[in-house]
Computed example of a mutant assay.
Amino acid sequence: MPENAQAGSRPATLIVDHEDQSATLIAEIENYLSQQVQPRTAVMNEHEAAEYIGCSVSWLRNNRRSSTAPPFVKIGKNVRYRIDSLDAWLSQQEIKN
């Protein structure tokens, strides 16, 4: 047994390998969690809705009463867009050749 080795101690390479494996596992878990779908609320405000469907807030405001815009709900004075309604509206906008 080498002079500076103690009984029951592990070589430094095993400790480094264990730390590398732990770091790799943690990185894989963090990557997996970041890719999971986050729970959505049932409604969005006009800024979130505009971003969601790819238009400007001003387009939503100007066309709110038009049949070309997605349906909305009023909660008190606030305008909200149901996610299900936005998804349905987007599906209706598809052009099939």
Rank of each mutant, 00 (worst) to 15 (best):
Q36L: 13
D84I: 04
K74P: 12
Y52S: 03
G76R: 07
S67Y: 10
K74E: 12
Q92F: 02
Q93R: 08
R80D: 03
L86Y: 01
Q35P: 08
Q92E: 06
G76I: 08
R40E: 11
S58T: 15
M44P: 03
V73R: 10
K74W: 10
W89Y: 01
V73T: 11
E46M: 12
C55R: 05
E94F: 06
S58C: 14
Y81Q: 00
N45C: 08
A42C: 11
S91P: 13
A50C: 07
Q93I: 03
A42I: 09
L90H: 01
A42T: 12
W89C: 00
E46K: 12
S67H: 11
R61D: 10
E51N: 15
Y52Q: 04
V43L: 10
P71I: 10
E46Q: 13
E46N: 14
D87N: 05
R64P: 07
P71A: 07
V43T: 14
K74R: 13
S58M: 15
V43I: 13
Q35D: 13
S58K: 13
N78S: 14
N45W: 08
L86E: 01
Q36I: 08
A69S: 10
P39V: 12
V37W: 06
A88D: 05
H47N: 14
R61H: 14
G54V: 03
